[in-house]
Write a protein that binds this DNA or RNA. Sequence first.
DNA 1: GGTTTAATAT
DNA 2: TATATTAAAC
Length: 249
Amino acid sequence: MDQALWPSGLRVLVIDNNSSYLSVMEELLIKCSYKVTTYKNVREAMSFIYGNQQTVDLIICDVFFPTEDSLLILQEVTSKFGIPTVIMSSNGDTATVMKYITNGASDFLIKPLRIEELKNIWQHVFRKQIGAEHRKCNNAEHVDQLPYRTMGITEATATLDSEIRENNGTVTDIRDLRKSRLSWTMQLHRQFIAAVNSLGSDKAVPNKILEIMKVKHLTREQVASHLQASPEKFESKIAQRWRSFIIEP
DNA sequence: GGTTTAATAT
DNA sequence: TATATTAAAC
């Protein structure tokens, strides 16, 4: 293969709680002549990204089952900074892969990763950029405006024109007189999840979530309702019970 | 008495 | 099914 064709120096951030596999990944990626940064948890990795903006081109992240909210933190950051994310897992059942891909992951790779696969991951960086340009030209609705549970990005949905947005895409107002009830869009849901995560899963109550989200015309009741329906909340509760079950039987 | 959550309604 | 509303529980 022609070494010159590879985008050497691509800055890759790897997140995996298994430190031995983290070093395996680092070794493989360095062989691809990428620049590698490694982190053992999502939280630290995200603060690195916030502190060093535009120094990461691609993120490779392990699925941290059962605390899947890490994926949602990733989503928030990647959508904010436009960094493509590749998910890796030893378990590659179709439902799981589908779930991550439809939630914005650029690729889903099965462990153990071969260097042949890593040599090609740079394509996601370009694909993402091209996709963004394409969306701009077509004046297509943004993925963030789709309902957060939609399975396919091709599904047609009316845009919420009166969702007032800032430049970074953050929803600041949900008022829409055409709609009788609120629709939780991808972006609104991300902000919700970000708020839940910034509190703990134990301290995440409707009032505090609402306070952090800073979305005009969003009510405590709406947040409460969403919190009940939130699969993330549900799953983290299961995880919590799991832990307490294991620790104190 | 406000807030949260379970249950129920739409 | 997703969101809203009710009402019990905290």
